[in-house]
Amino acid sequence: MAKPNKKGPTQTVEIACAKCRTLLFKYRKGGKGALIKCFKERIVTDYTHTPCTCPQCDQIFARDTLVRGAPAFKFVGGKVTMK
Score class of each variant (00 low, 15 high):
Met1Cys: 09
Met1Phe: 01
Lys3Leu: 14
Lys3Asn: 07
Pro4Val: 11
Pro4Asn: 00
Asn5Leu: 06
Lys6Phe: 00
Lys7Arg: 11
Gly8Glu: 11
Gly8Leu: 11
Pro9Gln: 06
Pro9Cys: 11
Thr10Phe: 03
Gln11Cys: 07
Gln11His: 10
Gln11Trp: 03
Thr12Gln: 15
Thr12Tyr: 09
Thr12Met: 11
Val13Arg: 15
Ile15His: 02
Ile15Tyr: 02
Ile15Val: 15
Ile15Cys: 09
Ala16Tyr: 03
Ala16Cys: 08
Ala16Lys: 06
Cys17Gln: 08
Cys17Ala: 11
Cys17Thr: 08
Ala18Asp: 01
Cys20Gln: 13
Cys20Leu: 14
Arg21Gly: 04
Thr22Asp: 10
Thr22Tyr: 04
Leu23Ile: 10
Leu23Asp: 05
Leu23Trp: 02
Leu24Gln: 08
Leu24Ala: 08
Leu24Phe: 09
Phe25Glu: 09
Phe25His: 14
Phe25Val: 04
Lys26Asn: 01
Lys26Met: 02
Lys26Pro: 00
Arg28Asp: 00
Lys29Asn: 09
Lys29His: 07
Lys29Pro: 08
Gly30Met: 08
Gly30Trp: 06
Lys32Trp: 05
Gly33Glu: 14
Gly33Pro: 05
Ala34Lys: 13
Leu35Met: 15
Ile36Phe: 03
Ile36Cys: 01
Ile36Pro: 00
Cys38Ala: 11
Cys38Glu: 13
Phe39Cys: 10
Phe39Gly: 08
Phe39Asp: 13
Lys40Thr: 01
Lys40Ile: 03
Glu41Met: 11
Arg42Trp: 14
Arg42Tyr: 05
Ile43Val: 15
Ile43Gln: 01
Val44Lys: 14
Thr45Ala: 03
Thr45Lys: 13
Asp46Ser: 14
Asp46Trp: 01
Tyr47Asn: 10
Tyr47Lys: 07
Thr48Lys: 03
His49Ala: 12
His49Pro: 05
Thr50Ile: 10
Thr50Asp: 14
Pro51Lys: 07
Pro51Ala: 05
Cys52Leu: 11
Thr53Asp: 01
Cys54Gly: 07
Cys57Tyr: 00
Asp58Ala: 12
Gln59Glu: 12
Gln59Trp: 05
Ile60Arg: 06
Ile60Gln: 10
Phe61Ile: 05
Phe61Gly: 02
Phe61Met: 09
Phe61Asp: 03
Ala62Cys: 09
Arg63Met: 08
Asp64Asn: 06
Asp64Lys: 01
Asp64Met: 02
Asp64Leu: 01
Thr65Ile: 08
Leu66Val: 06
Leu66Met: 12
Leu66Asp: 08
Arg68Glu: 12
Arg68Gly: 06
Gly69Thr: 09
Gly69Leu: 10
Ala70Ser: 15
Ala70Thr: 14
Pro71Lys: 07
Pro71Tyr: 03
Pro71Met: 04
Phe73Leu: 15
Phe73His: 07
Phe73Ile: 07
Phe75Asn: 13
Phe75Lys: 12
Val76Ala: 09
Val76Ile: 15
Val76Cys: 04
Val76Arg: 12
Gly77Phe: 14
Gly77His: 12
Gly78Ile: 02
Lys79Thr: 05
Lys79Asp: 01
Val80Thr: 13
Thr81Cys: 07
Thr81Tyr: 02
Thr81Ser: 03
Met82Asp: 06
Lys83Arg: 15
Lys83Tyr: 12
